[in-house]
Design a protein around this nucleic acid. Structure first.
Length: 438
RNA sequence: GGCCCUAUCGUCUAAUGGUUAGGACGCGGCCUUUUCAAGGCUGCAAUCGGGGUUCGACUCCCCGUAGGGUCGCCA
């Protein structure tokens, strides 16, 4: 089933944390390779010694792993392959396709330039169709600072050739590099791979998504508490759609339906709301156990020791990503589960109607009613009170009860609160409320 | 500015010559045992403009327009 004809590559340069755009390109490469039984080569393009950092390389490796994008070969580091590039440069100089050029500007007085034949370069792009570009204004572009310091175009072409890369699936912003690389391929006698330039991921203002637009690196999303499967789902469907109306896909399902020729031509705006929705859908797909464990972990991280497991499903209902738990904590939305709430007395009144006696009456009724029982379920709490509430006016009874228990204008329903808090704590809070009214 | 690319609801997209232009996110309304959330139902909302080709264009061609990418001894 292995199709050894197909080889793709994932070639990040470790000059920053792994960017979502690059992640998506990596994902498309992965999907394409897996779909067609091809091979994936992972190559670190760290020829720029100034900007390349191990920290970034590690981040990229980790991010790929987090997403579930695996590779068959590598990582290779271009910085460790100088012998290979040197040989190519020398060969090109020898056959006249490159030459050492004396410079009056720049930081080196001699560089290696490629002899540009000029004219036009035409190539076939799987996504865009036929593309033709003029190359005259490329001049004799530089392929190495010197014989031991090769530059991007040269290293890419040499490596793609040596690693047997058949399909180059990369971001749209690299399309203008293609003619240069084709020229180089011809000079070293490499076959021309097939190209597919995927459109860019755009910020809401339609410009290329970059750091000034907020969260752009995978680690940002990881830290915000997104699920990797949601990121994969979202990115996989950004600029690609298999047709049909399905929105939620797992990696394996994405592989099945992936088709490079269905990739969109235009850029796609990164829509965080949709990502959040997709993330929530994937949280729903988790097992209850897995979900609860993560919620517990986040609660503890936020300083809530030994959280009551009864609140896990409530929290689940209110979040679209784990990081929302951090936010809820910060905004004090969770405090009432753990300690007696503080609130303005006025909040106790249904629709702001300052009727102390009635409010007290209802609260007292409930207090008495619950003093002898404990709640086995939300239902049992409801059964105890609901008929009375219906008779007396649901808002009149239920609103003050809810406020007494939560101290909040917005919270889960009072029966759930009763069940979660238990009768002892509930009684205490209701008594509190009654005291406030006296 | 040169070169290149792109163009369907606000956003992601479906419809590859014939549909009341479909779905999703978001937004509004209603319902669902007070509020919030969740859920259900429902509503608003698009083929950039102009020419062709064709019996018939979202779909094909041309010209505009708009947006984007790229023009390093970075990758």
């Amino acid at each position: 089933m292995k199709n050894n004809e197909i080889v793709v590559r994932i070639p990040p340069s470790p000059t920053g944390y792994f960017h979502v755009g690059r992640a998506r390109t990596a994902l498309f490469n992965y999907l394409f390779a897996k779909k067609n039984g091809g091979k994936i080569v992972f190559r670190i393009e760290d020829t720029d010694k100034e900007r390349s950092k191990r920290e970034f390389e590690e981040d990229i490796v980790e991010s790929l792993k987090w997403l579930g994008i695996t590779y068959d070969e590598g990582p290779f580091r271009q910085s460790e392959r100088n012998d290979i590039y040197r040989e190519s440069i020398q060969k090109m100089i020898k056959n006249g396709s490159a030459y050492i050029s004396e410079e009056s500007e720049g930081s080196n007085k001699e560089v290696v330039r490629f002899k540009n034949p000029g004219g036009k370069i035409k190539f076939e792009d799987i996504i865009r169709g036929e593309v033709e570009m003029e190359i005259d204004d490329l001049k004799d572009f530089i392929i190495a600072k010197n014989i031991d310091e090769p530059l991007y175009h040269l290293t890419v072409v040499v490596d793609d050739f040596l690693m047997g890369v058949t399909h180059i699936i990369r971001g749209d912003d690299g399309i203008s590099n293609t003619p240069r690389q084709i020229l180089l391929q011809e000079a070293i006698g490499a076959p021309r791979p097939k190209y597919a330039h995927v459109p860019l991921i755009l910020a809401p203002d339609k410009s290329k998504m970059s750091a000034r637009h907020g969260a752009v690196s995978l680690r940002d999303f990881r830290e915000a508490g997104y699920l990797p499967e949601a990121i994969v789902n979202f990115l996989g469907l950004l600029g690609f759609n298999p047709g049909g109306e399905r929105e939620i896909y797992k990696m394996s399902e994405l592989i099945e339906v992936f088709d490079l020729s269905r990739v969109q031509k235009g850029g796609a705006v990164f829509n965080t709301e949709k990502l959040d929705w997709i993330n929530k859908e994937h949280i729903k797909l988790l097992s209850e156990k897995e979900r609860n464990e993560t919620i517990k972990k986040y609660l503890e991280k936020n300083g809530f020791k030994n959280p009551n497991p009864k609140i896990f499903p409530i929290i689940f209902e209110h979040i679209s990503k784990w990081g929302d738990i951090d936010k809820m904590t910060r905004e004090g939305e969770l405090d009432f589960y753990f300690k007696t709430p503080e609130y303005e007395t006025h909040l106790l009144f249904w629709k702001g109607k300052e009727d102390k006696e009635t409010t007290k009456k209802h609260l007292n009724w409930i207090l008495e009613k619950i003093s002898t029982v404990d709640f086995e379920s939300v239902e049992s709490a409801k059964n105890l009170i609901f008929d009375y509430a219906t008779e007396q006016g649901r808002g009149e009874v239920l609103w003050p009860l809810r406020v007494a228990l939560s101290g909040k204008e917005k919270s889960p329903d009072p029966f759930t609160l009763l069940y979660v808090l238990g009768s002892v704590e509930s009684k205490k809070r209701i008594e509190n409320a009654i005291n406030k009214l006296s």
